[in-house]
Amino acid sequence: MGLKRTDEFREDAVRIALTSGLTRKQVADGLGVGMSTLNKWITAYRDTDVVSKEDLGLAQENDRLRRENRILKEERDILKKATVFFASQKP
């Protein structure tokens, strides 16, 4: 029989899932719960005050910045490879 999770545990799990920057899989694995369980909790608590609008906004901005940073790093790596390639083509 599974361990009964407290409301506080569920709320903390939702807070972590929505604001930590970790994937839901990482959060679920880290907390020892299934993905479907975590997703069910997120659906149940998403529109409550478990996560303040400000914290949620900051988390969304962090996600956007992480994506932008990843793209910039990929572009930089491509430029580095191109520079090395073209430098090797000189007679």
Rank of each mutant, 00 (worst) to 15 (best):
D63M: 05
T48W: 07
L38V: 02
D49F: 06
R5C: 10
V27E: 12
Q60C: 07
K80W: 12
G2K: 15
D63C: 04
R67H: 06
G32Q: 13
L58H: 14
K4D: 09
A17T: 02
P91I: 09
A44E: 05
M35R: 08
D12N: 15
D49Y: 04
Y45I: 04
V84I: 09
A82C: 04
F85I: 04
K73G: 06
A13S: 02
P91A: 04
A59L: 02
E61M: 12
E54K: 14
N62D: 15
L79V: 13
E74N: 05
E8K: 07
R46E: 01
A28T: 10
R64A: 13
E74R: 09
D12M: 10
K73M: 14
S36D: 01
E11M: 11
E68N: 03
P91N: 11
Y45R: 01
K73F: 15
R15H: 02
Q26F: 01
A13T: 01
S36V: 06
S20P: 03
I42P: 00
V14T: 00
Y45W: 08
E61C: 04
L72V: 04
T48Q: 06
L56S: 15
K4S: 10
Y45G: 00
D29L: 12
E11I: 08
N69V: 09
Y45F: 12
R46T: 08
K40G: 04
D49C: 07
K53W: 07
G34N: 08
F86C: 14
F9P: 01
V84T: 07
R15N: 00
L3Y: 15
T6F: 11
L3T: 14
S36W: 09
K73H: 11
T23K: 03
G34D: 10
L31W: 06
L3F: 14
F85G: 00
W41E: 00
R64N: 11
L72I: 08
Q89A: 13
D47P: 01
L58S: 12
R76Y: 15
E74V: 12
T83F: 03
A59M: 02
T83E: 07
